[in-house]
């Protein structure tokens, strides 16, 4: 009997949780707040950038439904459930957050949050999509390093109907490999001839000999192999500080005390001198005993 009632309460709690997980009530006065920013390409593009940086880790890639398994679950932004929301509702939810969803009101400005709303609206069937999902074109990327002038020379081509032709005005990202990931060191656009030259900043740190592994990549609208330029001698030398000297009593160099070091050296020196003196005396005794015995015989 008791167990049964326990079960029932458990189910009730679970159900209530499930219900609360589904409904996210937005105050009525917030529902119909109008988007102050126009729905245009510029705002949608900026919104996409912000989405990739702040939202993608949980909400996944739009349309792929690869959301993180959280409770309450995140929703794919192209889904009907997301698009049912008014612009004001989406804005309110981004601003205040709930459960595992951060309150972005603190970290993203009002305008930028409206830009994210604009980006989500891009997938609304009622709207004319601003970002057209054109199939990615195949491209080729060639790059080499000029170690003297510390420059990366890049040449890009893309696959047109009649073979590969040069690719103008494409964004190329240059990064350097570090321990746990690649750090972006700059972006450059290809010129009319499909070429670009990127000057490596002076401040880039390489390994102990100044070698850097450079990664050159095209933007995501192209399918191209990432070019990795291994061991380019273009960086500053990595300064490695020696923290520990073997045999230091206080374990770090800075903690060594001069008076202690000097007295230590003096005492050990004196000890060795004493040992040497005794050994020398023993040697002398042996020698003198030998000469004496030879004298007797």
């Amino acid at each position: 009997m008791k167990l049964k009632s326990l079960k029932i309460t458990a189910i009730m709690i679970f159900l209530s949780l499930a219900v609360s997980a589904q409904d996210w009530i937005v105050p009525d006065d917030q529902k119909n707040v109008a988007n102050p920013l126009p729905y245009n390409l510029e705002n949608v593009k900026k919104g996409k950038e912000l989405f990739l940086k702040n939202c993608k880790s949980c909400h996944g890639d739009p349309g792929k439904n690869n959301v993180l398994p959280l409770v309450p679950p995140p929703v794919d932004i192209t889904s009907e459930k997301m698009q049912k929301n008014t612009e004001g509702e989406i804005f309110y939810k981004i601003t205040h957050g709930r459960g595992a969803m951060p309150q972005f009101g603190a970290t993203i400005s009002d305008d930028d949050r409206w830009r994210i709303v604009n980006y989500i609206q891009n997938f609304n069937p009622a709207r004319q999509p601003m970002l057209v999902n054109a199939p990615a074109t195949k491209a080729k990327l060639l790059a080499s390093v000029n170690e003297q002038e510390k420059k990366v020379e890049i040449f890009a081509e893309y696959l047109a109907a009649d073979g590969y032709i040069k690719l103008p005005n494409a964004e190329i990202t240059i990064s350097a490999k570090k321990n746990f990931g690649n750090i972006e060191i700059g972006k450059v656009r290809t010129g009319e001839n499909g070429r670009a030259i990127f000057t490596i900043p002076e401040t880039l740190i390489g390994d102990e000999e100044g070698y850097v592994n450079i990664v050159v990549a095209l933007d995501e609208t192209f399918i191209a192999d990432v070019v990795t330029l291994d061991k380019a001698k273009v960086g500053q030398l990595k300064q490695v500080q020696k923290l520990i000297r073997p045999g230091v009593l206080w374990s770090t160099n800075e903690n060594i005390q001069i008076w202690l070091l000097i007295s230590y050296i003096c005492v050990t020196g004196a000890a060795w001198l004493t040992i040497g003196y005794v050994a020398f005396q023993l040697f002398r005794i042996k020698k003198s005993s030998k000469t004496e015995s030879s004298n007797i015989s």
Binding site: S57, N179, G181, I183, E184, Q241
Partner: peptide, 26 residues
């Protein structure tokens, strides 16, 4: 960490990587 709290890296090469987003910064 699911919330991007931690950055970890090598001070000698002046780079730290976020454990959640895998973003690397100076």
């Amino acid at each position: 960490c699911p919330n991007g709290v931690y950055w970890f890296g090598d001070r000698n090469e002046d780079a730290v990587t976020n454990g959640t987003t895998k973003e690397t910064v100076s």
